[in-house]
Simulated assay, not measured.
Amino acid sequence: MDDGASRPSTSPALPPRLRKFIGTCLIILLVILWALGAMALAQGRVTTLPGFWQFLAYVVLGIGWVVPAALLIRWMQKGDRKPETL
C-alpha cells in the first residue's frame, strides 16, 4: 500500500523571477503601510508616553519593518542556486 508519503510534492514551485516580483511588490506595500501606521502611532499615542518609552517606541517603529522584510527576502531567495565555491 502506497500512502504517498514517500513521493515528493507534485505542486509546481513558483519560478524565481515571479517569486522575486511578488516579494518586491509585497516589500513596497509593507514599507508604505508600516510608514503610515508608524506615523499614526507616533502622532497620537507615543507623544503621551514618558521619555524612555517614547525612545523605545520610536526605535521599534523605525526599524520594526526589517523583520518582516527579512522574512520576505528569505522567501524570495528560496530555491535559488547557490554559487559554486572554489
Rank of each mutant, 00 (worst) to 15 (best):
M1W: 10
D2R: 01
D2M: 05
D2L: 07
D2K: 01
D2A: 08
D3Q: 07
D3L: 12
D3E: 12
G4H: 08
G4S: 07
A5E: 12
A5N: 15
R7C: 03
R7F: 10
T10M: 15
P12W: 03
A13V: 13
L14M: 14
L14P: 06
L14K: 10
L14V: 04
P15L: 13
P15H: 14
P16K: 01
R17H: 08
R19I: 07
K20N: 05
F21W: 09
G23M: 05
G23C: 07
L26Y: 02
L26Q: 08
L26N: 04
I27S: 09
I27T: 07
I28N: 04
I28Q: 05
L29A: 15
L29C: 10
L29P: 01
L30P: 06
L30H: 10
L30C: 06
I32R: 12
I32P: 02
I32S: 08
I32K: 10
L33M: 12
L33D: 07
L33T: 13
W34K: 03
W34C: 05
W34F: 08
W34S: 05
A35S: 15
A35C: 11
G37N: 11
A38I: 03
A38V: 09
A38K: 01
A38W: 02
A38T: 09
M39H: 11
M39A: 12
A40W: 10
G44I: 04
G44L: 06
G44D: 14
R45C: 02
R45I: 08
T47Y: 01
L49N: 00
P50G: 02
F52M: 05
F52H: 05
W53F: 10
Q54D: 00
L56T: 13
Y58F: 15
V59N: 04
V60F: 06
V60G: 00
V60W: 04
L61V: 04
L61S: 02
G62E: 06
G62T: 08
G64M: 00
G64P: 00
G64N: 00
W65M: 05
W65E: 01
W65L: 03
V66E: 05
V66M: 13
V66Y: 07
V66F: 15
P68L: 02
P68C: 05
P68G: 04
A69H: 05
A70I: 06
A70D: 08
A70K: 02
L71T: 03
L71Y: 11
L71M: 10
L71G: 08
I73P: 03
I73R: 05
I73F: 14
I73W: 12
R74M: 10
M76F: 03
M76E: 01
M76Y: 01
Q77N: 13
Q77C: 10
Q77F: 09
Q77W: 07
K78G: 08
K78P: 00
K78T: 10
K78E: 12
K78Q: 14
G79R: 03
D80E: 09
D80W: 00
K82T: 11
T85W: 01
T85I: 02
